[in-house]
Deep mutational scan, measured.
Amino acid sequence: TYVQALFDFDPQEDGELGFRRGDFIHVMDNSDPNWWKGACHGQTGMFPRNYVTPVN
Results as ranks from 00 to 15, higher is better:
25 I>Y: 02
50 N>M: 09
25 I>V: 07
38 G>L: 00
56 N>L: 08
20 R>H: 13
39 A>L: 11
38 G>W: 00
40 C>Q: 03
48 P>Y: 03
23 D>N: 05
33 P>C: 12
36 W>F: 06
7 F>R: 15
20 R>T: 10
16 E>F: 13
41 H>T: 04
54 P>R: 11
24 F>H: 10
24 F>P: 03
26 H>I: 11
13 E>I: 06
13 E>Q: 12
22 G>S: 04
26 H>W: 11
46 M>Y: 13
3 V>T: 05
16 E>S: 09
48 P>A: 04
46 M>H: 11
43 Q>P: 00
31 S>H: 15
1 T>V: 05
54 P>W: 12
10 D>A: 11
6 L>C: 11
15 G>T: 08
17 L>H: 00
50 N>F: 08
21 R>Q: 15
18 G>V: 07
3 V>N: 04
21 R>S: 11
10 D>E: 15
38 G>V: 01
17 L>S: 01
19 F>C: 03
52 V>W: 00
12 Q>N: 12
31 S>M: 07
33 P>L: 11
14 D>K: 08
53 T>P: 01
5 A>K: 00
35 W>P: 00
4 Q>C: 05
30 N>L: 07
35 W>K: 09
44 T>L: 08
36 W>N: 00
2 Y>L: 09
35 W>F: 13
1 T>G: 08
27 V>C: 05
30 N>K: 14
14 D>M: 10
24 F>W: 13
13 E>L: 11
56 N>R: 15
36 W>H: 03
10 D>V: 10
13 E>T: 08
10 D>Y: 11
22 G>P: 02
23 D>W: 05
28 M>F: 09
26 H>T: 14
25 I>Q: 00
50 N>A: 10
27 V>M: 04
40 C>G: 03
12 Q>I: 08
37 K>G: 05
4 Q>S: 07
56 N>C: 11
14 D>A: 12
42 G>C: 05
36 W>S: 03
6 L>H: 05
45 G>S: 01
44 T>N: 09
2 Y>Q: 06
8 D>S: 07
45 G>H: 00
47 F>E: 02
11 P>R: 05
45 G>V: 02
38 G>N: 01
55 V>G: 11
28 M>H: 12
39 A>W: 09
2 Y>I: 15
51 Y>E: 01
51 Y>K: 14
50 N>W: 07
45 G>C: 02
